[in-house]
């Protein structure tokens, strides 16, 4: 064994997260990135890696409801917190308003940025149910899309806002229940 190489097992830390409502845990090295923990340890591959420099947002997840870049977080750093990924958006096969918005408005092409975009949109509508186009563009400005030119992503988020507003106006029990995917 190489004496200068660190004893990786000794470095390992126990990471325990609530992911899409379920308790998940594993022992990993501190250097393991949250995105890698989600993709490799939990096999939730809807969270993507597009760059290495926090520039693209393909790895966006919600940490306690707030969108962050999981490529720029250590898994150990967020141990104990609650993570939402794209896999948690839908309630079973029923799409959330955000997913419906992206489908209806052709808000995705290759689909690689889409999970991040939808999670940012979801978090945005939580505190701003009726955002302007400018507010949407600003909110998604940490996420890069190479395909759509953003026009239809903006419309998709507006579409989701409209669905949610409609649901508030005429609440149906199942529509309310489908909201969080918890």
């Amino acid at each position: 064994m190489n004496s200068v190489s660190p004893n990786l097992d000794a470095l390992a830390r126990h990471v325990s997260l609530k992911v899409n409502g379920a308790e998940r845990s594993a022992d990993v090295e501190p250097r393991v990135l949250l995105v890698d923990f989600i993709r490799t340890n939990l096999r939730l591959t809807g969270t993507h890696i597009g760059c290495d420099t926090s520039s693209c947002g393909a790895c966006t997840v919600l940490v306690d409801g707030t969108p962050m870049k999981s490529c720029t977080l250590l898994a150990v750093q967020v141990s104990g917190r609650s993570i939402s990924t794209v896999e948690g958006l839908a309630a079973g096969a029923a799409m959330s308003p955000m997913q419906t918005g992206f489908h209806e408005e052709h808000g995705l092409q290759c689909g690689f940025c889409t999970p991040g975009m939808m999670l940012v949109g979801t978090a945005l509508l939580e505190h701003n149910p009726n955002p302007t186009e400018e507010q949407i563009r600003w909110a998604i400005s940490g996420n890069i899309c190479r395909c759509t030119g953003y026009m239809n992503i903006v419309k998709a988020i507006q579409h989701a806002a409209a669905i949610k507003a409609e649901a508030v106006k005429a609440p149906k029990p199942e529509a309310v229940a489908a909201g969080g995917g918890q």
Binding site: T45, G46, T47, E87, Q99, H103, G111, T114
Partner: peptide
């Protein structure tokens, strides 16, 4: 769309 919207694309 469906598989991508659910994070079930196969990249």
């Amino acid at each position: 769309d469906s598989r991508f919207l659910h994070g079930k694309g196969n990249y």
